[in-house]
Design a protein around this nucleic acid. Structure first.
Lengths: 148, 148
DNA sequence: TATTGTTATACTCTATAACTATA
DNA sequence: TATAGTTATAGAGTATAACAATA
C-alpha cells in the first residue's frame, strides 16, 4: 500500500508550518511575537491577571512570564498594576493600545476563518471540524499513553 | 449564525499547538530541537549539502545555519567536510549517529501517521487529506495576495 | 565583483536556582 | 512554611552587518 497515512501527516505538517509562518508574519506587523500575542489573547479572555495565573495558562515558567510582561510593558501593550488583595502579586492589565490590539487580533482571526472556510458547504465544514477534533483527541491519547 | 468558521479555525490551531508540542517533546528525547531536526531531515533527503543550500531549504539566514551546524557538530550528528570543488564552502555531512537518528525520525513519523490515521476508512482519509491540502492552498493564496 | 561562511552584536523565548517580600 | 515575582545565569533560535577567503 502506498502510505496514505504518511501522506496525510505530511499535509497536516505542511499546514502547521504555513499557518505558523502566516501568524508570525501577521503579528510582526503589529509589533508582537507569538508568545506575546498569546499572553494578550489570554488577558482579553480572562481580564487582568496575576503573572502566576498567566504562567499556568500559557504553560510556561514564572520567569518566562516576567520576560513577556517586560516586553509588553516596554512596547505599551500592558501595565503592571498592584493587586487589590495580595501585595506580592501584580495585576497585568491591558492598556488602551493593548485592548485595541487584542480586539484586532480577534477580528483578524475571524477574517482568516472566513477566508479559509467561508466558501465551504456547511456539511463539509462540520465534518472537517469533527475530523480535526478527533485528530486532536487521538494525539492527546497517544501523548498520555506515551508519558507513562 | 454561530461562527462555524471560527470554530474550525480554533480546532486547527489547537491541532497545531498539540502537534507542535508533541514533536518538540519527542525530539528532545533524542537530544534534538525542531530546527536541528529539520536540518537533519533535509540532509537525509538531499545528502551532503553546503550551508548555503541548507539556509535556502530551511528559509533562514546563513548565520542561523552556522549556529545550527555548530550545535549539531558539537552533539555528534553531523560533520563539516571540505567541499570537493569550492574551497569557500563546506559540505555538511551526517555522521553514523546522524544517519541513524534521521532514519529513526522517519520511522517515528511513519508510526505517528499510522497512529493518527491508521484506523480511518480509506475514503475518509483521502477526503481529509484533500481538505487539508486545499486549506494549505487557500492559505498560500491569501498570503500571496497579502504580500503585495 | 559576487558568493560562502564566520565573527560581532543583539533580541526573543525558554528554563533553573537563589532571593525578596509577602501570605 | 509556602507563594508571587525578580535577579542571575545560561542555552537556543533568529537576524543584520562587517569581514575573510575564494570564485
Amino acid at each position: 500500500m502506498p502510505d496514505r497515512c504518511a501522506e496525510a501527516l505530511s499535509q497536516v505538517l505542511e499546514l502547521v508550518v504555513v499557518l505558523g509562518d502566516d501568524m508570525a508574519r501577521g503579528l510582526a506587523r503589529t509589533g508582537l511575537t507569538v508568545p506575546r500575542a498569546t499572553l494578550l489573547w489570554e488577558l482579553r479572555v480572562r481580564g487582568p491577571s496575576t503573572q502566576r495565573a498567566l504562567a499556568d495558562a500559557l504553560d510556561v515558567s514564572a520567569r518566562t512570564v516576567t520576560g513577556l510582561v517586560d516586553g509588553l510593558t516596554a512596547t505599551g501593550f500592558v501595565t503592571r498594576e498592584p493587586h487589590s488583595t495580595d501585595r506580592r502579586a501584580v495585576s497585568v492589565t491591558l492598556t488602551a493600545k493593548g485592548h485595541a490590539t487584542a480586539e484586532a487580533l480577534a477580528e483578524g482571526r475571524s477574517a482568516l476563518g472566513a477566508q479559509l472556510f467561508g466558501d465551504l458547504p456547511e456539511a463539509r465544514l462540520t465534518a472537517f471540524t469533527a475530523e480535526v477534533a478527533a485528530l486532536v483527541e487521538r494525539l492527546r491519547a497517544a501523548i498520555r499513553e506515551d508519558g507513562e
